[in-house]
Simulated scan of single mutants.
Amino acid sequence: MQWTVYLSGEIHTDWRQQLMNGCEARNLPVSFTSAVTDHEASDSAGDVLGKAENQFWRDHRSAKVNAIRIRTLISNCDLAVVRFGEQYKQWNAAFDAGFCAALDVPYITLHDESIVHPLKEVDAAAMAWATTPEQVVEILEYVTSQQ
């Protein structure tokens, strides 16, 4: 079986690439999907619909256009990894985790101990909490093994 893993969350570090490299090095049957990780492209996704009268409506349109991709990819994945970084609040990642929970799509949270408390509900619905991309790779190796 080829597993599809949706990668959600923080876009300011290379955690996605670390996961992909780790899975490739172990020859795991995993392919990855993700939201658009180019910040400007994501923010301007709704601009094709015309000039918004203010920032709220620009963000609103772009969020909806981005949601077409995100909802489709989450709905079609076997597992999601939701990364929360230290520097920014990833409200979108929390929303993605809730969407996964509502669809009964298993997910793994990836974050350090400093934000365990604010993410307690998100972590409670997760199948696992990892602190490093390597731990996620090890989980993926286990769940995709043919043994």
Rank of each mutant, 00 (worst) to 15 (best):
Q2P: 10
Q2S: 12
Q2G: 02
Q2T: 14
T4I: 15
L7H: 09
S8Q: 02
S8F: 01
G9S: 02
G9V: 04
I11M: 07
I11W: 00
H12E: 15
H12K: 12
H12I: 06
D14R: 13
D14K: 12
W15M: 04
W15A: 05
W15Q: 07
R16T: 09
Q17S: 11
Q17E: 15
Q18P: 06
L19Y: 01
G22L: 03
G22I: 03
E24Y: 01
A25V: 01
R26A: 01
N27M: 01
P29S: 09
V30Y: 03
S34E: 07
A35R: 11
V36L: 10
T37D: 13
D38P: 03
H39F: 08
E40A: 10
D43C: 14
D43F: 14
S44Q: 12
A45K: 07
A45T: 03
D47F: 03
V48G: 13
G50T: 13
K51N: 00
A52E: 04
E53F: 07
Q55H: 00
F56N: 12
W57A: 11
R58M: 12
H60I: 00
H60K: 12
R61D: 14
S62T: 00
S62H: 00
N66Y: 03
A67Q: 11
R71W: 04
R71C: 09
T72K: 15
L73I: 03
I74F: 01
S75M: 07
S75T: 13
N76M: 08
C77S: 10
L79G: 02
L79Q: 02
L79A: 05
L79V: 06
A80N: 04
V81P: 08
V82A: 14
F84W: 06
G85S: 04
Q90E: 14
Q90K: 06
Q90F: 03
Q90N: 13
N92E: 13
A94R: 13
F95C: 08
A97H: 12
F99G: 01
F99K: 00
C100T: 05
C100W: 05
C100G: 08
C100A: 11
C100M: 08
A101G: 04
L103Y: 09
L103S: 12
D104F: 07
V105I: 15
V105P: 01
V105Q: 02
V105M: 04
I108L: 08
T109P: 05
L110K: 00
L110V: 05
D112Y: 01
S114A: 04
S114H: 07
S114P: 00
I115R: 15
I115P: 01
V116K: 12
V116G: 00
H117F: 10
L119F: 03
K120V: 08
K120Q: 15
E121H: 09
E121G: 00
V122T: 15
A124W: 02
A125Y: 06
A125M: 11
A126L: 06
M127V: 15
M127R: 06
A128D: 00
W129L: 11
W129R: 15
T132S: 14
P133C: 02
E134R: 12
E134L: 14
E134F: 09
V137P: 08
I139V: 12
I139L: 10
L140H: 04
L140G: 06
V143E: 10
S145H: 14
Q146A: 15
